[in-house]
Design a binder for these strands. Sequence first.
DNA 1: AATTGTCCGACAACGTGTTGTATATTTACA
DNA 2: TGTAAATATACAACACGTTGTCGGACAATT
Lengths: 187, 187
Amino acid sequence: MNKQPEITAQTRKNLIDAFWSLYCEKRIEKITVKEITQKAGYNRGTFYEYFTDVYDVLEQIEQFLIPTLNELPPITMPDNNMGMPVDVFLKLYEQNSKYYSVLLSDNGDPAFASKLKNSTKPMLKQAFSRNYDLDPVEFDFILEYVLSGMIGIMSYWFRQDKILPAENLIALMYDVMENGVMKRLSR
Amino acid sequence: MNKQPEITAQTRKNLIDAFWSLYCEKRIEKITVKEITQKAGYNRGTFYEYFTDVYDVLEQIEQFLIPTLNELPPITMPDNNMGMPVDVFLKLYEQNSKYYSVLLSDNGDPAFASKLKNSTKPMLKQAFSRNYDLDPVEFDFILEYVLSGMIGIMSYWFRQDKILPAENLIALMYDVMENGVMKRLSR
DNA sequence: AATTGTCCGACAACGTGTTGTATATTTACA
DNA sequence: TGTAAATATACAACACGTTGTCGGACAATT
């Protein structure tokens, strides 16, 4: 007999949603299986049919979020003469902001930022592969710097409730990537 | 009657050290009070004389690390005509690398990176205060970008076991801050 | 009617935080 | 200076909550 996908998918979703509403409020350490199942309206035992752990829920959510990056690479390739596709990254961030803004916050998961960076790197490496002059080691360091900066500034943007219009943020990011931060900081 | 500082300081240190050796190996969620006290050679109850929680140990460690930033500001001010004091930041990172490299890793605490950034910002704000042209809101965004990038690249440096000489890393960071990343990425 | 998927209740084991107690060390006073 | 009271430090035991698992009930599929 096959599974009943409609049912299990729904229960799974209910459990994930219950977990997420709790995760938005408090640290994962303080979330119990009891709380999740109570919120979702199931028995505690049912939880273990879907997840091994409370942390497993988070991992499954993250594993669902990462591939969305790799699905868009053909479009996200920087134009031949242009710089970083900051607008695409921001759009991606906004699309999944429900999860991104929390996972990348102070109460989030540092491993998620890493997963995000590591998923993006191959794409950017290929896009910039025509530059043979650059030491591949240095290249990785620069990538780590840019991606950390981008994730940092985008998270900050959300934390500040988007006080800056998206266009301004994109322009700002373009500018600091093209010309560095010093010119902008010290006249 | 006064406390016996030598004794309590030693037990506290023993407990913190035991916690840290565990924290280097696994996620904080999986660390129990029992493990810590066993490793340190104390009764489980003794732990609660010093800390309220396993997480309290981490917080106390972080609270000890943050002020070291504020103790060096007179020196860390960027020279009048120079850029970011990247060398000072790197030195600071290296001095506390035992803790920094772990706290800023995938298994670390995202809140620590925030604390680090927020402790550094006022210092940099003052250093760049002569620039009246810049919108203070934009300024904060740029700071968030640079600091995220710096922390990201320095953590990466440690993660890669410092394959790049420190001088090269400093030069690289200076360059991307002065001139941006694009010139270096795409010739 | 039989089989399998989904969910539930109960159980043992473990970890938590607290409270009362023993031992060692400091202080006060003779 | 020597002794007894006071307190600091560490410990053992307790009640409670959470965890992960296992067998069974009920429903849906074939």
